[in-house]
Amino acid sequence: MSLASLCHRVLSDLRQHLYTQIITTVVVSLSIVIFAFFTLIYFNLHQFVERFGTELGLVVFLTNDIPQGKIPGLYQKLTELPGVEKVTYISSKKAFKRLENYLKGEKGVLEGIDPKFLPPSFEVRVNRAVFHLKRIRQLAEEIGNWPEVSKVQFGQEWIDRLESFLRLFRILVAVSGLLLLFTAGFVVANTIKLTVYARQEELKIMRLVGATNTFIQGPFLAEAFMQGLLGSSLAIGAIFVCYRFLQGLAASSELLRGVNIYFLPWPYTLAIITSSILFCVLGTAIAMWRFLRL
């Protein structure tokens, strides 16, 4: 069978079965949209949580009676700890100023209070690359043992909760992702099966007049290829539009200011397109098989 005759047959096939071709493509597309949207959201939540975690730092409170002279040495020591990115010194006075700012109109509350009642502290930011909850905990413990340090705060409880939440979240995502994928596969496979079964007479007749399986399958598989490619590309396109929309939303929202929205990484989108094509072609070949045996 020549390429020209294959093209001719594909074209006349498309003309004759345009409606079913479109339906199949739309079904493929919708199934992927649902799955890909889900992964997009998951992916972004994941990124968000990860980054949020890295923005957590340690607050190292010093003893109230620490001599000024010791501060630079401590500063140096903190900076030299592995994984530490930035260290900021907050003196008692500065801490008091902050409190004042925070209280704004109700400054009166602080009247007569010694500006030195707040302990001086260091804010320690941890390097993103090294960031790991375990590492932060270690760091806190280490610093906490220094004699000049009265207390290290790093939201232990919060991190613990975040960690167990993340564990649960990952399981939930994996399970619902699999269910979604399974459903999508099931729907697409059955749509393909039905469209092939609707044309079983044609398949049988072609077999009866001496067509080889390759000849019969040619246009069907070519069409399946196009359905897979077109369906998944449309879906990715739609997800991209969603992504742009979310981006706009994030930019204009007070709450989400500074939150980056990411698109699915390109190897991932490529994998979606490839597997969609494979799925359609294989599904079609399998659905056809029972009519090509006699």
């Binding site: 007479e201 044609e202 007749i205 077999r207 009866l208 001496g210 067509a211 080889t212």
Partner: peptide, 20 residues
């Protein structure tokens, strides 16, 4: 089987024409 069938012209009792 297809190569056998090319040597045989079958006129089916129920025609078996492609309706489209």
């Amino acid at each position: 089987i297809p190569y056998l069938r090319r040597k045989i012209g079958v006129i089916f009792q129920d025609f078996k024409l492609l309706s489209d």
